[in-house]
């Protein structure tokens, strides 16, 4: 038995994990299309911020949309769909091959 692997008696009941957090899970790795924000067209209505299933829309201190967190963004395209100003377009990831996958467009959220 390898020293670092636990015996069954060391696991809590229910298969639960203590202190686990989704903050560590880079769901951005799943993305094939990425939302690109046009800051000039954006009216900061925050519909994208409300609808984003991964809380990936970043806002600045004035609560204006300032970017997308690509560490979490799965590229579902919901933000582009609900945007009334046409300020978000979905582009293939192939166009961004020279950028790191988890790059953040805008300010980085705390906790990563």
């Amino acid at each position: 038995m390898s020293a670092e692997l636990k015996c069954w008696q060391d696991f809590p009941p229910g298969g639960i994990a203590f202190g686990a957090t989704a903050r560590q899970v880079e769901t951005g790795l799943w993305r094939s299309m990425r939302p690109v924000l046009d800051a000039v067209r954006c009216v900061s209505c925050l519909r994208c911020w409300v609808q984003c299933p991964d809380a990936s829309i970043i806002t600045d201190s004035d609560a204006r949309v300032s970017g997308v967190d690509f560490f979490f963004c799965k590229g579902c395209g919901l933000c582009a769909k609900v945007c009334p100003a046409g300020a978000i377009v979905m582009r293939p990831e192939a166009e961004f091959l020279n950028e790191p996958c988890g790059a953040v467009q805008g300010t980085s959220p705390e906790g990563r």
């Binding site: 692997l5 994990a17 202190g19 686990a20």
Partner: peptide, 15 residues
Amino acid sequence: PVSYGSFVMSEDYFE
């Protein structure tokens, strides 16, 4: 805080 239903690979599932 706890998580229920985490993904577990072969090295821990049996335990």
